[in-house]
Write a protein that binds this DNA or RNA. Sequence first.
DNA 1: AATACGGACAACCGCATCCCG
DNA 2: ACGGGATGCGGTTGTCCGTAT
Length: 274
Amino acid sequence: MGRQPCCDKLSVKKGPWTGEEDKKLINFILSNGQCCWRAVPKLAGLLRCGKSCRLRWTNYLRPDLKRGLLTEAEEQVVIDLHARLGNRWSKIAARLPGRTDNEIKNHWNTHIKKKLTKMGIDPATHELINKPSTITTTTTKSQQIPSAIQLDHQPEQVKTEESHATTSEENSSSSPTKNCSGAESGSSSDNNRDDDPLMNFLWENFDTPFLDASWDFPAAAGKTINNVTMLSWEENCAWLLDRQDFGVEEFGSGCLYDVDMGMNINMLDRGEKF
DNA sequence: AATACGGACAACCGCATCCCG
DNA sequence: ACGGGATGCGGTTGTCCGTAT
């Protein structure tokens, strides 16, 4: 027997969300919280698949999302984490507060991949592309690009070999995705915390998301936790309900800001429900 | 001015994993 | 321990918009 479809595909709307739909979804989650996504569309009066509602919320409507391009620092973290984790975007996103896996994935595919390729680095393996042409060797420590690649500062050897940088995609058959996916290697990548200072720092200090404040906004409202002033749930989301047009500039400031870390804070534990 | 093209990003699809009875 | 439903995740596609011709 086959798997049941997540929803009746004939009766659900697809394609871009309208402002009205966004409002309905926001209103519903404001009053009921995140629970049972399958039931959300029905209860919220939406002709959408529950999955679609979840994606819309997590990728676009969540009040803690940062908008706009990733900063250079964020890009650097993405590159470092990708070198270690492969295409495990959700793991990477978990360490970038206010960023979603989808956003990071898109940014990787449209920006970072190109940058790395241009620099002569295979984005899939994080190795220099100017390897001896005939021999395909297993990755060695010496071939690995230092994780703290500065995108604007090409290594000297990379510059000289840039003309060879055109076949990176084709050479990426042994991608970190394959290496990291599944049980066979996923844990090993986690355990394999080598001497990369940045990565060690990230792993040691942020095994949980950088800051993982609770969904329990009403209780936390007005309090200062770790130098973060918690706004009420209503305060956090009021701006959303006022929006007819969710322009990028409207999202510029996160609803929480960590004074010490100088970044917006992920208020949501995505796995948590209330 | 019209059309083609390409980049960026939102959204969908299907499989994997988790969780609970 | 097992089965089935719910959710999460990553890959892929679709759509919009800016730029080039």
